[in-house]
């Protein structure tokens, strides 16, 4: 039932169906999409109330987070289950294309921040970094960069090992990737704390601070999401939910992690070195 008949004459509206029951192809209903949209709406409202100084009910914030996380997980589980009765190569191909296009749009959001930074620097500001902004210390972030680049490799090796059937090795490399990601975040956090405490460098003191904290912060948020993604993959490996055919989450997490890595390389160059 899962693959389609290719025997019809072109283009056909033949009443005579080769299949016993074409209604089996009707799409299945799902409550996850509407619940996720509701969750994002609740979460955004709660965020808005907190950010503009209202006292949002803690319950509202909690409800928002739960209404995002539960449908997201439920949805992912449904997709994994559905793929078991669809052509796996085909579903893999369309999921991959969809995910890559999504990353392209993510890249465009980062692009708007890069465009802002470069325009201000080369088209607007008279001195750079602007007066009052510190010269950024590069050695620690450089180490972070190296670790993040290394983590892209460890993830790749994990993927490779998994495809080759070496499950234990794959798990170890994945664990190494997660640790490297956490260390990267720790270095970033330390860097932020240092800049704030000793250099009195804040996001509201000038345009450079705004760019610095938003760009590194927005990237850091992506690292956090990427880490969640990696943990999910680790958990699925642990439970044996993936095999040589069904491992889209492994591939998607790899694309995501490489994406986060590449964005960081640009960021490091533009913010710290240039």
């Amino acid at each position: 039932m899962a693959t389609e008949s290719h025997s019809a004459a072109a283009p056909a509206h033949a009443a005579a169906a080769a299949h016993a029951d074409p209604s089996a192809h009707a799409p299945q209903p799902s409550a996850w999409p509407i619940l996720l949209a509701l969750g994002i709406g609740v979460f955004a409202t709660a965020f808005f109330l907190v950010a503009t100084g209202f006292n949002a009910l803690p319950l509202l914030v909690l409800a928002g987070i739960l209404l995002v996380l539960i449908p997201a997980l439920g949805w992912a589980t449904t997709i994994a289950a559905e793929r078991r009765h669809q052509d796996p190569n085909y579903t893999f191909a369309i999921l991959r294309r969809g995910f890559l296009y999504f990353l392209l749009s993510e890249g465009a959001i980062f692009g708007s921040f890069f465009a802002h930074n470069l325009y201000i620097r080369f088209g607007h500001a008279t001195t750079w970094p602007p007066l009052g902004a510190p010269r950024l210390e590069t050695s620690l972030p450089a180490i972070g960069t190296l670790l993040l680049v290394l983590s892209s490799f460890t993830y790749h090796w994990s993927h490779h090992a998994f495809i080759g059937g070496k499950r234990a090795l794959a798990k170890n490399w994945l664990l190494a990737t997660i640790i490297l990601g956490v260390v990267f975040l720790a270095i970033q956090g330390y860097d932020w704390g240092f800049l704030k405490a000793f250099d009195k460098f804040t996001y509201s003191q000038g345009v450079f601070g705004s760019q610095f904290y938003w760009m590194t912060g927005f990237h850091g948020l992506h690292v956090c999401v990427g880490l969640l993604f990696l943990v999910l993959v680790y958990w699925r490996m642990e439970r044996g939910e993936m095999n040589q055919t069904y491992h889209f989450s492994l591939t998607a997490a790899e694309y995501y992690w490489h994406f986060v890595d590449i964005v960081w390389i640009f960021l490091f160059f533009v913010i710290y070195l240039l």
Binding site: A51, Y101, E106, G111
Partner: peptide, 23 residues
């Protein structure tokens, strides 16, 4: 796919200027 994210980015900046007083 390529234009809407730019609007999202620029409105994040505008909203941030309004709420967090960034520059």
């Amino acid at each position: 796919l390529l234009a809407v994210p730019i609007l999202s980015g620029v409105l994040v900046m505008l909203l941030s200027d309004r709420i967090f007083h960034t520059g």
